[in-house]
Computed example of a mutant assay.
Amino acid sequence: MTRADSQSSQQPQDPPREQFEGRTRSDILVALLHHGPSSASFLGEHLGLAAAGVRRHLDILQAEGLIEVTGPRNGSQRGRGRPAKAFALTDAGRSQFGHDYDTLAALALTALRETGGDAAVREFARKRIESIVADIQPAGATEESIKKTANDLVAAFSRSGYAASASEAGTGVQICQHHCPISHVASEFPELCEAEHRAISELIGQHVQPLATIVDGHGICTTNIPLTPIKRQHPQDPGQGRSGS
């Protein structure tokens, strides 16, 4: 073997084209998971790829049933012209990120309800969400404190597979969960979602507003947190009106 042949054999080889393209399509799915419905141009800018190449991958993902055309959202508006086509994950696309234990979880909760009733399911849901947000400090009275707790919630939910984000919207902060690892189970056991909303409300220290949920067919779960506190009286606070019920 010549010296040139030896050096050539030691040089790293480029990955096969099929492997590269598969990785690109995986990156597109992850981008759609985090950003919601998006156009080819938005995905191209986000991933550093040409829009034409992204469209080819989108066609393949759509043919495989992993994405679908939906209403315009991220980066899909072309000035005053017609909105660009936007793409979103289908249920099959979301399943790529993990729904392996849905059936087992649903069976376990069904058995729990049969043996312990609705109260047992609610207690399970409470303990589950408490384990997710265990290290989060409750918010104080200031906007900065509320925003910090909201960001801490986003980090905790993301660690548990929710692909969460937070953004300011109007006079509040919105927590968005772009993926719900328990969505199929939660559709049968709404106590799971109710426990999440209750935990967010308790940590923020005020009423929060669920605006959309994946369980109800929306692309994301959105919870609005007003930055102007809506004070809630404790049931034992003096001066609280009594309904007599």
Rank of each mutant, 00 (worst) to 15 (best):
L32P: 08
T223N: 02
Q233M: 09
H178F: 11
H57V: 05
R73Q: 14
A163T: 09
E123H: 09
F157Y: 14
G140W: 04
S201E: 13
A195H: 02
A199Y: 00
Q233N: 07
A88P: 03
Q19V: 15
S38T: 13
T24D: 09
T222N: 01
C193M: 11
V30K: 15
G241C: 00
E188A: 12
S183Q: 11
H234K: 08
H184V: 12
A106P: 00
Q77W: 13
S8Q: 10
H34L: 15
G217E: 03
P37E: 10
A155W: 00
P210I: 02
S167M: 03
H179V: 06
G53Y: 02
L192C: 03
A105E: 06
F124W: 13
I136S: 04
A155K: 11
H46I: 07
Q7P: 00
H99S: 11
A195W: 01
A92R: 12
R56K: 14
V154Y: 00
D237R: 08
G79S: 12
S245W: 01
A31I: 12
T24Y: 04
E18T: 14
A139C: 09
A141G: 13
P15Q: 06
H99T: 12
V69K: 14
P226K: 00
D100N: 10
E64D: 15
S39K: 07
T110Q: 10
A106I: 12
G140V: 11
Q206D: 09
L227C: 05
A156H: 05
A212H: 02
A86Y: 03
S41E: 14
L66R: 11
S41V: 14
R78S: 14
R122W: 04
